[in-house]
């Protein structure tokens, strides 16, 4: 029974197993970190999402109100009774949805927030 080679063999096997365990440990550590980072994202995500919601709400309402105001004012001056009001109101609605489309597709400003 040659001990030498068996020992070497057995040692190599144990080393390989150890390396595998280490790898698995490092892998699960990284997954854990990713999951935690993702959890952080949702915390910050709430603030990000709510600020997006506030912006969408006020831009939608403001665009339509401004459209209606302009239409109503032009009607007053030009005496074209309801027609301009209806036209500008429709344009205000279009402006509202156009703003929201731009907002939803390109989250914010030039660079767009990195994480979303």
């Amino acid at each position: 029974m040659q001990d030498g080679p068996d020992d070497a063999e057995e040692l190599k096997a144990r080393l390989a197993k150890l390396r595998g365990d280490l790898q698995a440990q490092r892998e699960s550590g990284r997954k854990e970190a990713d999951r935690k980072a993702e959890a952080d994202l949702t915390d910050k995500g709430l603030g990000q999402a709510m600020s997006l919601g506030f912006r969408v709400l006020s831009e939608f309402v403001a665009a339509i109100v401004v459209g209606a105001l302009i239409g109503w004012q032009l009607d007053e001056w030009l005496g074209t009774s309801p027609f301009l009001l209806i036209l500008l109101l429709g344009l205000g609605v279009a402006a509202g949805f156009w703003n929201i489309y731009r907002l939803a597709v390109l989250p914010s400003g030039r660079g767009g927030s990195k994480e979303s």
Binding site: R55, S58, A62, A63, G67, G92, A95
Partner: peptide, 25 residues
């Protein structure tokens, strides 16, 4: 012409949306 009118309306609605949002909340 429509797009330009829409852009003008959305630009005009900016100060109103900016101020009314903070005020209303």
């Amino acid at each position: 012409p429509f797009i330009v009118l829409i852009e003008i309306i959305s630009f005009a609605s900016r100060p109103i949306s900016l101020s009314v949002r903070l005020f209303a909340n």
